[in-house]
Design a protein around this nucleic acid. Structure first.
Lengths: 192, 192
DNA sequence: TTTTTATGTATAATTTATTATATATAAAGG
DNA sequence: CCTTTATATATAATAAATTATACATAAAAA
């Protein structure tokens, strides 16, 4: 799957592994991310498969760059993938939900600490979508010949925004649902 | 991470790999799932690490069952994990968003087909959360000594419900955002 | 009657992803 | 002056996950 992300970026411009890592970090990382080592090994594999070509660009006082270029076969592979509709909904892994599912024996205070911490993190993430990410995309939409692309990027940004809003709402609901019984417990015996 | 899911289930009752696969399928699968082979290999590894113990239960006319039991070390490992707050938000992989991000060159009709198909799938999933899943949990809450646990299961179900509502809303928005420009294009030239 | 579903465990092969480490240097910040 | 950040690639080791396959039987459904 990472391969399609890399092919996607390479349709815009030739790039090195380092570049591609950076592109992911600032664009798709919220819904598709990869470590540097995985990017480098995947690019090697893709070159063997003929999806990309590479050449070395010497640099003075910097390590050489290995710049990748998408091939016709690569473009086709990418197009086949985007054109092929998915018949299932993607499976997710949400660590927090797994923890919560098995948290009945845990002290409510510890759960609350965790949920409140998560709320802060998700609020920060929401804020990022609404400011930084939004600005970056509208700058692309305004200037270059990427207005059309920017509409799709904006759709993925909007998903992030709605997702974080939903997440915060759920955290609020869940925190309250845990607080209420705790209050009852704490009020049922006299204060020391 | 799968290891914690397995430990979690084993705090309720001893179980075989087959049982555990079934438990996951009907409970955590929407936010944490695993294949049968991964469950079996992980259980073996966990036994080596002393987190679980197993014994063989002979059966007539059925293959023997290898039944696992959580150890004290296993309980501690699980508790350490649940008690340890996460300092980051979990990273997600959303195939659909990745496809959409690189779909500017694709025919709008193909994108619409994909999004509408996804809408159907997510509506079905939402429906499942609101009926089947909800019923299963409230039955547990009503009968057994699992009322407390059921509150947490309900919280994870509620996440699923909110998530699917959000997803459908986003799909509607996105479909409309793609349809409008398509309408303009189609109306800009006379009908054949 | 044949096929599917359910019961059960196990391993091999492969793919995907993470962590850690090695090598090199320049510019900027504290 | 020292540390961090940025620039750049690469591999080894490990972990996590998927796909495929093998063995074995009974009941229920088509």
């Amino acid at each position: 799957m990472l391969k399609y992300a890399l092919l996607g970026f390479l349709t815009y411009k030739n790039a090195s592994g380092y570049d591609l890592k950076h592109f992911m970090d600032v664009s798709t990382s919220n819904f598709w991310n990869a470590k540097q080592s995985q990017i480098y090994t995947t690019l090697k594999k893709m070159e063997k498969e003929g999806l990309v070509l590479s050449h070395t660009e010497p640099q003075e006082s910097r390590p050489n760059r290995r710049v990748y270029e998408i091939t016709t076969a690569g473009r086709e592979d990418l197009k086949n993938w985007t054109a092929q509709p998915m018949m299932e909904i993607g499976s997710r892994k949400e660590k927090l939900l797994l923890k919560l599912f098995f948290s009945a024996q845990l002290e409510p205070q510890k759960i609350l600490t965790e949920l409140r911490l998560q709320k802060n993190l998700h609020q920060a993430q929401l804020n990022k979508y609404q400011t930084t990410t939004k600005n970056v995309i509208s700058q692309f939409a305004a200037s270059k010949d990427l207005q059309e692309d920017a509409r799709f990027w904006e759709a993925t940004r909007r998903f992030g925004e709605l997702y974080e809003e939903m997440y915060i709402r759920w955290l609020d609901e869940t925190i309250e649902g845990i607080c209420k019984p705790v209050d009852r417990l704490e009020n049922s015996r006299p204060v020391d």
